[in-house]
Design a binder for these strands. Structure first.
Length: 165
DNA sequence: GCCAACGTTGGC
DNA sequence: GCCAACGTTGGC
C-alpha cells in the first residue's frame, strides 16, 4: 500500500508593507498568528485542511517586485482569529460571536529565508509553473495549495535545490 | 495612483 | 435567486 504523503504545501500572501517575511523571522519563536484573513475560501484552507508541519511559501504581494521570500510552516491547530472580536481592530467583525466564530487561523513559523528571492516575473518564465494559482490572471486568493513538484521547483529557483527543510 | 478582476452585500 | 452596486486586491 502506498504510504500517504503527510505534508502539504501552501502559498500564503502577505502585503510586503504590512507583514514581510523578515518581520515573521524576527517574531518570538519566529512565529505569528496568520490573522486578518477575511475570505471564506482562504479561511477554509486554514480551518479544514492545514496540518502542523505543512510547508508554506511566503509570498510578498504589492511589492517591487512581488514574489516568494521564504519558507514557513504551519505550527498550530486552527483556532478562532482573535481580531474578529476586537472592536478597535480593523479586522473586527460585528457579525461574529465567540460561540460561533466566523474566522479561523493557524500560527505560522518562519523556517528559512530563500537565498535568492524569487520574483513573480521569474515564476511566470517557468513553463513547469504555468498552472499555479498565483500566476492566473485576476488571481486574488491569498492562500492556495501548492503541488509538491511546484514547491520543489520554486525552492530550486530560490537557491535551495535540495530542500534542507 | 490606476484600474481590471474579483468577492460580498442587499434590494427586489 | 438574480444581479447591480460597492469595496477590495494586487499587478503594473
Amino acid at each position: 500500500m502506498k504510504k500517504p504523503s503527510h505534508r502539504q504545501y501552501w502559498l500564503m500572501k502577505s502585503e510586503v508593507d504590512a507583514f514581510p517575511f523578515g518581520v515573521l523571522w524576527a517574531s518570538p519563536n519566529r512565529t505569528s498568528p496568520w490573522d486578518g484573513v477575511r475570505n471564506y475560501q482562504a479561511r477554509n484552507f486554514m480551518r479544514d485542511q492545514m496540518k502542523i508541519g505543512d510547508r508554506v511559501l511566503f509570498y510578498h504581494s504589492n511589492a517591487n517586485p512581488s514574489g516568494i521570500a521564504g519558507i514557513a510552516e504551519v505550527c498550530s491547530a486552527p483556532y478562532p482569529d482573535p481580531t474578529q472580536f476586537e472592536p478597535t481592530s480593523k479586522y473586527f467583525d460585528p457579525k461574529s460571536t465567540e460561540e460561533a466564530p466566523r474566522w479561523w487561523l493557524v500560527d505560522v513559523r518562519a523556517v528559512a529565508e530563500l537565498p535568492r528571492f524569487v520574483p513573480l516575473p521569474l515564476l511566470r518564465q517557468e513553463a513547469a509553473l504555468v498552472d499555479m494559482h498565483v500566476l492566473q490572471k485576476g488571481s486574488r486568493l491569498s492562500i492556495t495549495p501548492i503541488r509538491a513538484e511546484h514547491y520543489r521547483c520554486i525552492l530550486a529557483l530560490g537557491g535551495l535545490p535540495n530542500d534542507p527543510t
